[in-house]
């Protein structure tokens, strides 16, 4: 464990020299930290403390399985049922349902609204996350009115559960460089024989894999789950992809 990313446990005091200070930008606290007024910053989870002096932000990096909604997270939700004004969706098992207003879709009006059936998947953003209220979702950018890739998921595919840390790595801009995750590129590349598939990754630990061929869906889903559970490195991922492709062909 390197010195610039120290281990913190809940309730420990953070060394003041580690807290980034920026003349203009306010300090931004990410997951795993809480601010006790006036000036205490205390970790609430066990993990590595990461600081970013450029963005003036800090957070605790850790892995877990239970999704706790927070604003602006991109998630995969499943429709449970519809009420007169909104859909009730599930983000994680055994949690209170999130609400998705009927009008929170691109181009939706009272006359033309998308009809979603129970069980259908939507790719959505958390627009409201508050301890005292059920979370609220949206499939449209509130200011621009554009969907930006959000909305109901269509096409044949299957959903796979992964850990939250793994979902976060998949959502990185460059998963191969930053997250040590090249399994999807390998499956679509020469190791996997150029499989054709698409994915949608939710911050709530769910990955949707879609493809015309059921075989591809199963191979990609299994590769993702085994990479997560086996904590495979890039070399391990290559071996896994080769093994899966050999077994399934």
């Amino acid at each position: 464990m390197s010195n610039d990313r120290p281990l913190v446990l809940p309730g420990e005091t953070i060394d003041l020299s580690l807290i980034p200070s920026h003349p203009k930008n306010p300090l931004r606290l990410g997951p795993g930290l809480r601010h006790i007024p006036p000036s205490d910053i205390v970790p609430t989870a066990a993990g590595e403390l990461i600081t970013n002096p450029v963005k003036n932000s800090m957070w605790v990096e850790y892995n877990s399985n239970r999704y706790i909604p927070s604003q602006n997270d991109i998630i995969l939700a499943q429709i449970l049922r519809s009420t007169s004004d909104f859909y009730l969706c599930s983000l994680a098992p055994h949690t209170p349902p999130a609400t998705l207003p009927h009008l929170a879709f691109e181009g939706a009006t009272k006359k033309t609204r998308p009809v979603l059936l129970p069980g259908q998947l939507v790719y959505a953003r958390v627009s409201l996350a508050n301890a005292h209220m059920d979370p609220e979702l949206e499939c449209v950018h509130a200011s621009t009115g554009k969907a930006d890739g959000l909305g109901p998921i269509t096409g044949t595919g299957c959903i796979f559960d992964v850990s939250l840390g793994f979902a976060r790595r998949l959502l990185m801009a460059r998963p191969a460089q930053d997250g040590g995750l090249a399994v999807l590129e390998m499956l679509g590349g020469e190791e996997g024989g150029g499989m054709a598939f698409e994915t949608a990754v939710g911050r709530n630990g769910r990955v949707w894999v879609g493809s015309a061929s059921a075989r591809t869906v199963v191979v990609v889903g299994r590769a993702l789950q085994e990479t997560d559970r086996g904590r495979l490195g890039v070399e391990g991922q290559r071996r896994l992809v080769k093994k899966l492709v050999r077994e399934m062909s």
Partner: peptide, 17 residues
């Protein structure tokens, strides 16, 4: 003990770092 066990757990979870 608590600290060292958590250290190994976190290191295993964040092996990709």
């Amino acid at each position: 003990f608590l600290r060292s066990t958590m250290e190994s757990k976190v290191a295993a979870d964040l092996h990709w770092k």
